[in-house]
Amino acid sequence: MSSILEVRGLTTQFSGPKGYVTVVENVSFAMKPGATLAIVGESGSGKSVTAMSLLRVLPEPPARIAAGKVLLSGKDLLQLGEQAMRRVRGRDISMIFQEPMTSLNPVMTIGGQIVEAIREHRELSADEARAEAVALLDRVRIPDAGHRIDDYPHRLSGGMRQRVMIAMALAGRPKILIADEPTTALDVTVQAQILALLARLQSEFGMGILLITHNLGVVAQIAQRVLVMYAGRIVEEAPVRDLFQDPLHPYTEGLLGATPRMYQDAEAGARHRLIDIAGIVPQPDQLPPGCAFAPRCPKAFARCREERPALLPTRDGRQSACFLTQNTAASA
């Protein structure tokens, strides 16, 4: 199947006091229609900046997209004018954010906001747009949508607000939905509901989802492929199953080790212990000369500190940016 969105060598920089600092470097990936691709990584790894670069909604300046291509059905979004780009937003690619509490306009009814979103994309009369808004609220499973539509956001719970956000994002019937930490601010039970909803809407609308999260549990639930980002670069790409069973990059291993699990190791009779990754993600302007993860990596050796490993295919269509996996791939 051909991909609907292809990102090639995306590099985003922010101007700082000492010139431009690269925050996202040479990121490439492809999205297939109707599939879910997840980007995982710690805070500050460049996940959100990557997503916002796709939609070109970073404030420029200070941000600038220094290189790369974002091909949407073959058309490079980075070459489009602002007017044309606005037609892409919402219609081709839409986005939902982490904070449902602040992502809705406090002085407008939720219906009003959805109607605005609908009428931005389609020529509908006020009544038609309202009927469409009720239908959308129904689709995101808001009970009693006909009445709820006149509520103000402060009367809704976090989960309900996130549903309203999703309804707004779907108003233009996008082909791709970028979900930036869609469940982080929600209760665990509500998280599960929202994820189930996203999965169901995905099959109903047939859209691709680009899921941005630091929560591997969320990834396991709805994603098919995973990109692991560290310090602005992709360090591993793999199908979700392979990634969980056999992580190639030490950073991925670290992430998995830091995730609580219930069943794993039970047969081995050992209790799984949470292992944290020591240290923090380096500032983008203070990257070490070699592999960015080397200072925190338990398996790092001399070469890691001097030379930066490239992201190279390993096996089964996977990619990894680590000398260790590349060595094993070469010897195998």
Partner: peptide, 28 residues
């Protein structure tokens, strides 16, 4: 700078609409 403005931008809302229908009512 508020997030609801950002969420209007990413769904492709026009600037006129964001200014007069989304932001202005907040500073009435």
């Amino acid at each position: 700078e508020r997030e609801f403005v950002q969420s209007c931008v990413v769904i492709g809302m026009s600037e006129t609409r964001i200014i007069f229908q989304q932001i202005l009512p907040n500073c009435l």
